[in-house]
């Protein structure tokens, strides 16, 4: 291989234009991520995929792979900081895992399992966020929203509907809905939207699907997200090349 870089001591091949994240995942090395979905443009906002390149921190999902660079990913220091990022997300919103329908399929939760997070550490902020259950088929639970912006991007770029946007700023940031009332029921959202499939947490859910798969038998109940994620990424790659 002509183009390779070192990732935690392992030589990773890459094609020009690939990001560190793409190349690593293709080579079977998992890099934690929440706001990134390889089917869409990277966003680098959750910062969970932060790696170091020649000692400097960057988001792997947007960092171009460059030959001979020295990348660190799975180190105790980076994983400790990733755990802190997750703890921040957990105290920022209201995440009641025991009563959440997404439990077991949730990337926030499973990433936290994977990184060994056993507590939320910080004081809970207990924000007040309005849920939107106005739509007959779709529910928006803002308590669980981690502001990854995936639904915003996919609804705008793929569905061409721009149903969602992030409003306000800083800690007051929130997801808003494109309709005269601001409610989903008056929007053009549909269960078939691609945007409905990308929420990493239980913020955007389709109604009447609850507990079709029992708790304990869900994706990340059976295998850690690192395994599931790599399999999905590689399956996607093969699917595309067929």
């Amino acid at each position: 291989m002509e183009n390779t870089f070192s990732l935690d001591g392992k030589e990773i091949p890459f094609e020009p234009g690939q990001t560190v994240w793409d190349a690593a995942m293709a080579a079977g090395v998992y890099i934690p991520h929440l706001c990134h979905n390889p089917d869409y443009e990277p966003h680098s906002s959750c910062r969970l995929c932060t790696i170091t390149v020649n000692g400097r921190p960057f988001a792997a999902c947007t960092q171009p792979a460059v030959a001979d660079q020295l990348v660190h990913n799975n180190t105790p220091e980076l994983n400790a900081m990733r755990r802190t990022i997750l703890q921040m997300l957990f105290v920022e919103g209201n995440h009641y895992c025991p009563s959440c329908e997404k439990s077991g399929n949730c990337k926030l939760q499973s990433s936290a399992y994977d990184l060994g997070m056993q507590d939320n550490h910080f004081p809970q902020l207990f924000p007040h966020r309005e849920p939107d259950s106005s739509h007959p088929d779709v529910i928006l639970d803002r308590d669980r929203c981690i502001l990854c912006g995936l639904c915003v991007r996919v609804s705008r770029d793929v569905d061409k509907k721009s149903i969602f946007a992030i409003a306000n700023r800083g800690i007051k940031s929130e997801l808003i809905v494109n309709s005269p009332s601001g409610k989903l029921v008056d929007s053009k959202v549909s269960v078939d939207d691609e945007a409905m499939k990308v929420c990493p947490v239980g913020s955007l859910m389709i109604k009447r699907k609850g507990f079709e798969v029992p708790i304990g038998q869900r994706d990340y109940d059976k295998e850690p997200i690192s395994v599931v994620s790599l399999r999905q990424f590689q399956g996607r790659k093969e699917g595309r090349h067929e």
């Binding site: 209201n94 009641y96 025991p98 056993q118 507590d119 939320n120 809970q124 207990f126």
Partner: peptide
């Protein structure tokens, strides 16, 4: 030792915090 969701996060009872 904080044991379980309620001890660690407030859990379901803390839904009243809203």
């Amino acid at each position: 030792v904080s044991m379980g969701e309620c001890a660690i996060t407030g859990g379901i009872p803390s839904m009243r915090n809203h």
